[in-house]
Design a protein around this nucleic acid. Structure first.
Lengths: 396, 396
DNA sequence: ATAAACTTTATAATTTTTTTAAAAACTTTT
DNA sequence: AAAAGTTTTTAAAAAAATTATAAAGTTTAT
């Protein structure tokens, strides 16, 4: 039988608040957790005794008696392993509880293919190796958070699209036994939204949609201040809504999907094709030399103002904007965030998106929604994975 | 100063549960309200003393001691005025607390036009007259619930599209002073969704979308078991998402809106045009005689299998289905309900909608969502208005 | 400048609510 | 028909939220 401490739930909630809010007073904590001050006071005191939390002087005056402030103890040796898997690259990093990078991040090029057991072995080995080399003992690691594309059931810990382990075990369980650590997995777009909600422009907002511009177009939804997953966990399948007029067939087998014309993969293919057709571009030299065009270089060229890259991104962005117009009508969000690795080209995305919104949105509705580019951008992925651990681990 | 009774919140919640659940035991109420049994027991007892609730024998056995059951007192003389306003007709009815019709419903043909103060006066007079003639004293009326199309801010009680009163007062306040009763207003599609959630096929479900098939196509959204309104209250503006390939300009000024091809108004216009062009139909006789084609007759003809009506509805339904495919991708709902007055033609709608879903949805996602036709259909509107009163009034 | 008035936080006392335990009422099984 | 098992009801104990009071710090007025 597992004995659960009395204040355990509030204890967890308080640690989370310290993780998100850094330096907090008892009154603030009471409001954030919707618990009474005496109860919060007692629980924080026991957290201080435990060594988890420490006093940190008086908070700035607000016109009356100054409050004591608290934060997570700097003696606290607890770390989080954050993993971001995408179609081509797997990244891993170890953060401390202040979201400071403890161990230099590493990445490896592993292409995600359906039903190939070797890929899972490779990724597992990569993560395990990184953790072992970090030298951090297992009892100081709160857990491993993993974000990945595909239809992910976060509760069951199953990815129905990629990395299916042999037998009837779930990916989560499989990794947990392989790594000897608690493992939590979720859809990459959901985690990016979580990162934006806790640390980004969406902080403390209630109704936000986060568009993940990356290899595909993903969507993470925040409803009533928390992640919305839908009836069975697959809400936000934005990239396959019927929008485009093209006849190209999507990987999902349907026609007209948003993804066909807006994924970074397609954009790069188009750039290469145009260069092969003789269109000149600053990317030419690199492309001719390597025979490839990495996404980073493509985005970099666009930021530097390369006409070809800018024009390709603009075309895609207009279609994304048409999709966003649909989202605004249905969800009436307060804010839409452009995030994910593609958000580095945020400024270029904004104009055509705004144009599409003007064309396809009822003005009255469009007015109610702000559109912003993420500050976190490429960091959102890993930060989201870390947040997933904090949201689900047990802090012992 | 207003003195608020201690148990007031729980008291209200319990009365609501009795309204929705009819006959309930203390244990059931405890679970429904998430309050402890002793507390619920005390509060129900005081409700019995008050005369609001009465004991009603033992509940059916569940294998142990049989529980006492309670229901709203049959001596309780409390009534609800439910009003449903649409583009052409305004209906009103008085229900008792068992949703039984107390006074024969009445309706009047008042066309809703923007910024014409006479319309508001007319509608106000119609409602007032109905209430006065009912002979029910004001103190027995819990409130007046009104559902109407347009951009409605339910909290402020303002309809930004229709029925704007002179001066800086809100529609809600204006009607409340005119009628001398508490008034609550909301968007018609939201109220239809509320009716389906509390009394229809969506009862007790968590993630449901209710499509209001009527003069336009509306959408009421249920997220996490309660009505979702979005950041500023206008979520579910389904009918103006960019979908259709036609070039017809919508009333909103944009092209490609779902509404252009799917509203009942447009369907009837098309039927009339086809008949003028010589297409034979069972509706011909009536149309020639009246020079008009009422919606009821059109829907009736479709149900009776008239080929013209069926074909027109089927074409519209396919487009609605395309819109529903988008909704399934974004929201991943457990259930989509076809409701509103057009749901009478539910069987005819189903086939083309299902076809569109097959064509535009990822099969894996489509599997997770049920599509059902409402049982309430035309009653949903007024039932929703009544529910709005129950959700917001003070039961005194 | 200094004291009074006002704010805000911290702690103690009280009340409310929940949790746990025990008793009562009814079913089902042996 | 009695015993064992359920479920509801009532009672006692524990936990938590309110309310009240005290303490600490700011601002305002003299």
């Amino acid at each position: 039988m597992i004995i659960v401490k009395k204040h355990d739930l509030l204890r967890k909630e308080l640690i989370k608040q310290f993780y998100y809010g850094k330096r907090l007073t008892l009154t603030e904590l009471s409001k954030l957790t919707h618990k009474s001050l005496p109860l919060v006071t007692n629980t924080v005191n026991s957290l201080v005794e435990e060594g988890y939390v420490q006093e940190h002087g008086l908070a700035p005056s607000t016109g009356g008696r100054r409050a004591l402030s608290f934060l997570l103890s700097d003696q606290l040796q607890r770390y989080i392993v954050a993993v971001a898997i995408d179609q081509l690259v797997t990244q891993v990093v170890i953060y401390d509880m202040m979201n400071k990078i403890m161990i230099t991040p590493e990445s490896t090029e592993i292409t995600l293919f359906k039903d190939d057991p070797a890929v899972l072995t490779e990724i597992t080995g990569f993560i395990k190796n990184y953790i072992v080399r970090s030298g951090i003992p297992a009892h100081q690691i709160l857990g491993v958070g993993i974000g990945m594309p595909g239809f992910v059931n976060a509760v069951e810990g199953i990815n129905y699209t990629f990395l299916k382990p042999d037998g009837d075990t779930s990916l989560k369980k499989h990794l947990a036994t392989e790594l000897g650590l608690p493992v939590f997995i979720d859809n990459d777009s959901s985690l990016i939204a979580l990162a934006e909600l806790k640390f980004g422009v969406a902080k403390d907002l209630k109704d936000v949609l986060v568009v993940n511009v990356g290899w595909g177009i993903g969507l993470g939804m925040v409803v009533n201040g928390s992640l919305f997953r839908g009836h069975t966990g697959y809400a936000g399948e934005f990239s396959h809504i019927p929008l485009s007029a093209t006849n190209k067939i999507c990987s999902c087998g349907k026609r007209g999907c948003l993804e066909v014309d807006t994924s970074l993969l397609v954009m790069i293919e188009r750039a290469k094709a145009e260069m092969n057709n003789g269109t000149s571009s600053s990317m030419e030299k690199l492309y001719k030399k390597k025979g490839e065009l990495p996404a980073d270089e493509f985005l970099q060229a666009a930021r530097a103002g390369d006409p070809l890259a800018v024009s390709i991104i603009s075309d895609a962005a207009f279609l994304i904007g048409k999709g966003i117009a649909t989202l605004i009508h249905i969800m009436n969000p307060g804010l839409i965030v452009l995030s994910g690795s593609g958000a580095i080209a945020g400024k270029i995305l904004m104009a055509p998106i705004q144009q599409a919104i003007n064309e396809f949105c009822i003005p009255w509705l469009a007015e109610q929604t702000e559109i912003e580019v993420s500050q976190l951008a490429a960091d959102a992925k890993l930060l989201g994975s870390a947040t997933l651990v904090i949201e689900n681990c047990n802090f012992n």
